[in-house]
Write a protein that binds this DNA or RNA. Structure first.
Lengths: 214, 214
DNA sequence: TAGATTGTTAATCGATTAACAATC
DNA sequence: TAGATTGTTAATCGATTAACAATC
C-alpha cells in the first residue's frame, strides 16, 4: 500500500473554484460557460482552465464553451462529491464548530454524523445540528456509525493519539487540521491542512513589497 | 504595481513546518539539527529540505547539520515573523473566533488589535481577548488602529463589499477565507485560503483507493 | 580516520504556457 | 460567413530529485 500520490494535484485543487463559478452560471440560467469567462473570473489563464477541465472528460463546443449542467455533474463525479460521505469530527472547539457549520461541505457530500469532545458541557448537546459525543466513546461510536472520514481538530498534543484511535476504529481518511504530522499506516489517507503555510506566503509577499526581500 | 508573484512558493509553504520541528529540537536542547532528521519527521526528501533551507541563507555543518538557534532566527526573519504585524479580523463567527484564538499566530507576529462583527450581542465584548467592534466603524477604526493585515471571515456575500471598505481604510494585505475571488487594486496583497481545495484532494485520493478513478 | 551530511551542479519530472488547426 | 473558443501538440518554465565532491 504505497502512499496515495495524486496526479494533477494543482488542477484538482482548482476544481472547487471552477465548480463555484459554474454553479453561479447555472443559477443565472446559463446553458454554456466558456473557459475564457471562468479564467477571467478567477484571474487565471484560459488555457489553464481548459487543460484543467479536460481531466473531467467534458468536451466543450467551440464558440459557446462548456455545457454547464454536464460540467457541474462531471466535476462532482470526478471528486466523488455526488455521493454522501459520512464523517465525524474530533474536537468541537472553535475551528471544529466552524467546520461543522460550513454550509459548503454539505453541498460537497460531506455529512457529519457525530462530533467528539472532552468538554462535559458540550457532550450530549448539538452544534450546528450535529450531536456531540464523549471522546471516550470514539472507537465504538465510529464503528457503529460506519464513518469513513475523520476531521481532526483536537489540540496538537492529542493529535497523534487520537489518530491512532481513529485508525483502530476503521477510519479510512483523516483530514488533519493540527500542525502535527501524523504517523499512521500507509493505507490511511491523510490530508493535512496547514493554516500557517498560507500565512507564510502572505508574509513573504508583504516582505517583498517592503523591499526587505528580493 | 504588478500582482506580487512569489518565487519558491512551494518552499515558502514548507518553511512553517520546518520551523515547528526545529523549535521542538530547540526546546529539547539540541544545538544542531540535520536536514535528514527534518525530512524524516515530515516525510520529505532530505535534498528537498536542504534546498528549501538554503533560501534562508543559513549554512550547515557537514555531519552535524544546521545550527538550531540561527536557523529559527533566519526562518523567522525571512518570513518577517520576527516583527509584530497588527491585524484586524472581519466577521467574528465560528471560523473568525477560531482564528482569533489560534495560539500559533501570536508566535508568528500576527497580533489582532480588533475584530468586527454585525451581531449586537458580540459588539462591545471580547473574544479570546480581542475587542469586538461594530462593523459600521470599520473604516475609521482601522485608520486609527493602523492595522496592516485584515483577516476576512465574513459570509461570502459580504466579502467583496467588505474588502472595498478595507482598501479604503488603508489595509495593505487581506487574508481571505471566503470563497469569493476579491476584485481589488493590484497593489493590495491578497492570500486566499480555500478549504474546499484540500477537501478536493482528499476526495480524489479516496476515489483512487476505491478504484473509481485511475 | 571513516562516514554522515552538507552545498552545488546537472538531470529529470511535471506543470504551465504558447501556438495553431479544427469547428460551431 | 467571420470569429470566438475549443482540444492537441509542442515549448517553456520551474520544482524536485540525483549525483557527487567537499568537509567536519
Amino acid at each position: 500500500m504505497p502512499k496515495t500520490k495524486i496526479s494533477y494535484a494543482p488542477s484538482v485543487r482548482r476544481l472547487p473554484s471552477y465548480l463555484h463559478i459554474i454553479r453561479q452560471a447555472q443559477r443565472a440560467g446559463d446553458y454554456y460557460i466558456s473557459g475564457t469567462v471562468i479564467a477571467q473570473e478567477l484571474n487565471l489563464e484560459p488555457i489553464q482552465v481548459r487543460k484543467d477541465l479536460a481531466i473531467t472528460g467534458i468536451i466543450g463546443k467551440p464558440k459557446k464553451g462548456y455545457p454547464v449542467e454536464a460540467l457541474v455533474a462531471a466535476i462532482e463525479h470526478y471528486l466523488g462529491w455526488d455521493e454522501i460521505h459520512e464523517a465525524v469530527l474530533l474536537g468541537a472547539g472553535n475551528l471544529g464548530s466552524a467546520l461543522l457549520g460550513y454550509q459548503e461541505f454539505q453541498l460537497h457530500g460531506l455529512h457529519f454524523v457525530a462530533a467528539f469532545d472532552t468538554d462535559p458541557g458540550k457532550i450530549g448537546g448539538h452544534i450546528h445540528g450535529v450531536p456531540i459525543l464523549s471522546m471516550d466513546t470514539v472507537e465504538q461510536a465510529i464503528k457503529s456509525l460506519k464513518a469513513e472520514i475523520a476531521v481532526l481538530t483536537v489540540p496538537s498534543p492529542q493529535a497523534q493519539a487520537t489518530a491512532e484511535t481513529l485508525v483502530r476504529a476503521g477510519i479510512a481518511s483523516i483530514w488533519n487540521f493540527t500542525n502535527t504530522k501524523l504517523k499512521v499506516a500507509d493505507d490511511i489517507i491523510v490530508q493535512r491542512e496547514d493554516l500557517s503555510s498560507g500565512y507564510a506566503l502572505l508574509s513573504v509577499m508583504m516582505q517583498k513589497v517592503k523591499g526587505r526581500l528580493e
